[in-house]
Amino acid sequence: MAVNETLATYSDWCFRAAVLVYVFAMVGYAVEQAFTRTAKKSEAARELVGAGGPVPAGTDTPAYGRVEAAPRRDRAERAGRAAVALTVLGVALHLASLVLRGVATQRAPWGNMYEYSMATMLIAVITWLVLMRKFDVRRMGVFVLTPVVILMFLGGTVLYTDAGPVQPALRSYWLVVHVSAAIISSGLFLVPGVFSVLYLIKAAHDRNPAKFARLAPKLADADTLDRLAYRTTIFAFPIYTFGIICGAIWAEAAWGRFWGWDPKETVAFVAWVVYAGYLHSRATAGWRGTRAAIVNTTAFAMVVFNLFFINLVISGLHSYAS
């Protein structure tokens, strides 16, 4: 099974171009974030409604006390819109890179850590685009793209693996099912992880306005951050559960047991339990809000820990990195 070197090279170019475009997009979001004037009360109220409140879009009342008829798009707004356009371009390049890898190697393009982290980040950015379409969260783009760019940079340097075939243990259709479920859920989890961190910043500011005085007023309100984190998580959690169960089914066929407390399995279990804790904490008196956000952040930290630390530092059955 020969690897198509030309396509593999094109894939690498697309990957680099995608990272570069994301960096530009990140700058765009950062400019918007930095130069947005703090929203006026009336606008803030409108945003709350628009962002998942009970009244459907189109029926909200206009903001009072605004004189100018058609407000000119200011520089911050233009930067934000450019950033979205760049993000879309980045996703296109990113997707092209992944598809080319798959075609070049004639297999699912997630057989090593470089490909895995690339695919996960693609899902994260797509999640972000979907959320931006439905909710007014664009200004916070810099906080989502920064971890994406960092993880992609690490993926493209530390974890980079030449396009090639996978070892016999990975020759199974479960590679497609189990790993793609892991990729989709992990990519989805990145966004609520970021939102929960932002929630903690915002909530700290709301309790004491002196804290994060420059940053917090430009974030969405705490309620929106909490709700979006929760909604994305409950979408991702069943996929994550499905991924773990598929992993168990695969392990039964490949390693002779469905569960053996291999380090990767263990930390996946730990992250699953912490996510379960998050879902319960939002329904428990005294645990809503800040505590729930801390739990959600911890859960995402476990997912990242499972990807990097467990695969690179601890040797186990999942050590496919090299």
Binding site: T266, V267, F269, V273, V274, A276, G277, T284, M302
Partner: peptide, 18 residues
């Protein structure tokens, strides 16, 4: 509340195994 704390303890207790 107890169930939540037990959940977190379970997660914590599983970690040394990894």
């Amino acid at each position: 509340r107890t169930a939540l704390i037990l959940l977190f303890l379970l997660a914590l207790a599983a970690m040394p195994g990894a």
